[in-house]
Design a protein around this nucleic acid. Structure first.
Lengths: 246, 246
DNA sequence: GGGGAGAGATGCCGC
DNA sequence: GCGGCATTTCTCCCC
C-alpha cells in the first residue's frame, strides 16, 4: 500500500472514532512538559477514541512516548514517509512520529462500560485496622479514618490503652525514608493543632528498610509489621478446582 | 474463525517471539501484589517478545492490567471462549483473560535498538545550576552534585557568599509538602554529620504550593523559582518554518 | 482546578 | 539484590 493510501486509511479510522493499533518503523520526537527524541526503530502505536496515544518499543512495559485524552491527530505524507502529528493544545504538548514503513495496521470501534475493582490497597489495609484494631496492639481504639490536616491526610487516628493519641500511617509495601518523614509531619501537625506534647506515631507496613527503621527510632516512632489483605487469594485457594483460577 | 483456530494462531505468534496486538471482548482477573477483577468489555491487548503484557481499555492512557517481562503466556479454549493465562512465577503474579470475541488480531517480529533521550529532567536542572550557580543567587558556589548521605541524595550542595553551607533540592514541577520534608531531612542530616548548627536549605522549582511555602518558611528555608531547561523549545522557535516542528 | 497522596506504581542508578 | 528517588509519572479524591 502506498504511503498516501495508508495516511488516509489512518485518518479515516481516527475520524470514525475507532481505536487504532499499528506497528511501524519510525522516529519519534516529543515536546511538552519535557522533551525527547528517539531514533529509527520498530514500535507499536495505539490511538484511542478519546485521543490518547501510546508509543511502545518492542520490549518493556512502560510506553516510551504518550499523550493524554484530548489530543488531536493528523496524518500526512512527506517524501514517501507518513507523518503523524499529535497535538494537545491545552497541555501544550506535541508528538511527531515519522513513519518509514507500516508493518501492520488495524482499527475497530470499541465499547467498554466496566470499571476495575482492586483489592489489597492501602485503603483496604486501613479499613482492616479500623475493623480489627488489635492488629496494632491490645487496647488500641481508632477514632477516625482519613483525618484531614493542613499538612496531609492521616490514615488511622486512634487512642492507645493509656489514652495517648496515636497516629498510624499505612504502607502496602516496604516502608522507606519518605514514609517516616510523612508520619513525622502528621505527628508534629497534630501536636501543634491539638496542643498535646505526647503523640505516638506508628508505621504499619509489611516491612521497613534499615535506614527508615533507624530514622523511625531516632524520632521515637514505632514499626508494626502488617500486610494488606488479599481476598481473592483466600477465595482462590478454595475455588481453584472449580474455576481453574489458582 | 473458530476459537480453536484463534487460540493456535495466537500461541504460534507468541512461540515465534513476535509482538502481538489484538482487540477483543473479554473479562480480566489479576492476582499478585494486589488483586483485581474487570467485567466484560472491549479491550486492546499487547504481548511483547520479552513476555510483558498490557491490557488497555478503550479510553485512558494507563493500562488497566499489565505484567512485566518474563511472563509466560498460554492460550486455550473452553466452552467456545479463548482463555489467555499469563503467569509470572518469579513475581508470583497471574492474569487470566477470558475472551468472548476477537475483533482484530495482528502480530509481527519487531526490532528496535534505540534508546530514548529525554531533556528537561530534574538532573538537567541540577546540571544547569551547577554550571550557572548565580541562578540560585550571587556568590553561590556549588561544592558537589548528587552528594550521597545515609538519609538520601542531595541534588546540589554548595556554599553561599557568607560561607554558609547550602543545600539545594530541585523539583521539575510544582514543589509540594513532601519536597519540603525531603529538604528538611537533608539539612538535618548534614547538620548532624558535619556538626554545623547553621545550614541553609533552598527549594528550587518552577512554583510551590501554598501549604508547602508555609511549611518551608516555618522551617527557615527558602524558595527559588527555577524551571528545568528545554532545548527543543528554543530550537523550534527558530526552526519552525524549516522543519514544521513548532 | 489545585493540592495531596497512593499506585499491582515503573524505571534508573548506586551500593 | 535492596534502597532511595525521579517520573512527560498517572490516577483518584477532596477541598
Amino acid at each position: 500500500m502506498k504511503p498516501e493510501e495508508y495516511a488516509s486509511l489512518l485518518s479515516d479510522a481516527v475520524a470514525r472514532n475507532e481505536t487504532l493499533a499499528f506497528a511501524c518503523s519510525c522516529t519519534i520526537r516529543y515536546s511538552g512538559r519535557a522533551e525527547s527524541s528517539l531514533g529509527l526503530g520498530d514500535r507499536i502505536i495505539i490511538i484511542k477514541a478519546d485521543g490518547s496515544v501510546l508509543c511502545h518499543q518492542p520490549t518493556g512495559s512502560a510506553p516510551i512516548n504518550y499523550m493524554k485524552a484530548g489530543t488531536a491527530h493528523t496524518f500526512r505524507t512527506e517524501k514517501g514517509k507518513i507523518i503523524l502529528t499529535s497535538n494537545n493544545l491545552i497541555q501544550k504538548e506535541k508528538i511527531i512520529v515519522t513513519i518509514e514503513k507500516i508493518h501492520f495496521f488495524n482499527s475497530h470501534k470499541l465499547e467498554d462500560g466496566q470499571t476495575i475493582s482492586v483489592m489489597g490497597t492501602e485503603d483496604d489495609m486501613s479499613d482492616m485496622i479500623y475493623a480489627n484494631p488489635s492488629l496494632i496492639e491490645d487496647g488500641f481504639k481508632p477514632v477516625s479514618q482519613e483525618e484531614q490536616t493542613k499538612y496531609g491526610f492521616i490514615d488511622v487516628l486512634g487512642v492507645d490503652k493509656n489514652g495517648t493519641l496515636t497516629i498510624v500511617e499505612c504502607k502496602r509495601y516496604s516502608a522507606e525514608l519518605s514514609a517516616v518523614t510523612q508520619l513525622r509531619r502528621y505527628v508534629e501537625k497534630v501536636m501543634v493543632s491539638k496542643g498535646i506534647s505526647k503523640v505516638r506515631g506508628i508505621l504499619a507496613a509489611p516491612k521497613i528498610t534499615e535506614n527508615a527503621k533507624k530514622m523511625l527510632e531516632d524520632w521515637g516512632f514505632e514499626f508494626k509489621s502488617i500486610s494488606p489483605p488479599k481476598y481473592f487469594e483466600e477465595y482462590d485457594k478454595k475455588q481453584a478446582r472449580l474455576d481453574g483460577f489458582g
